[in-house]
């Protein structure tokens, strides 16, 4: 590379580096999991999954557990295979929360519906591009904040 090209490339790099407004870094994870309910419990209905960072970055009192970054809906309990993009600059650790939509209304519990079970699991082995988890929905009408940490 000639000196002129080297200088031009350097100048271009400085200009580009100096004009970045937001830099988003995502980490792709293939999640291979299993969603289940306790034996004998009703299992009909779609399962709504929410993927959280285990601890959200913040300063002082602004640091807090959990922070959802993706949501998915799967047909029902059973094996699950999802690809998610984890925001590296927003937190650390990976948590999966899910609940069973027994009445199909898309709302987790409501007056007259107090039996939709939920569950949460912290995924071991993070960070890695391929992870597995096992989630059991056993706590009716409970949000993720009540299950973690």
């Amino acid at each position: 590379m000639s000196r002129a090209r080297f200088v031009f490339a350097g100048a271009l790099g400085v200009v580009l580096a100096g004009c970045v407004n937001e830099e988003t870094r995502l980490y792709e994870i293939e999640l291979d999991g299993k969603v289940a309910v306790p034996d004998g419990a009703p299992s009909a209905g779609a399962v709504h999954l929410a993927f959280h960072v285990a601890k959200t970055f913040g300063e002082g009192d602004l640091e807090h557990p959990l922070g959802v970054f993706e949501t998915r809906t799967v047909a029902g309990v059973g094996p699950v295979r999802e690809t998610v993009l984890y925001p590296l600059d927003e937190g650390e650790g990976l948590v999966v929360y899910g609940w069973l939509d027994s009445d199909g209304d898309g709302v987790h519990c409501a007056p007259g519906q107090t039996e939709e079970p939920a569950g949460l699991v912290k995924v071991a082995g993070f960070p890695a591009h391929a992870l597995s988890f096992s989630l059991t929905l056993r706590a009716p009408c409970v949000g993720p904040e009540s299950l973690y940490p």
Binding site: C19, E22, E23, L85
Partner: peptide, 8 residues
């Protein structure tokens, strides 16, 4: 300009 990086 915004920069997006995906680590696969």
């Amino acid at each position: 300009p915004d920069l997006l990086t995906i680590e696969r």
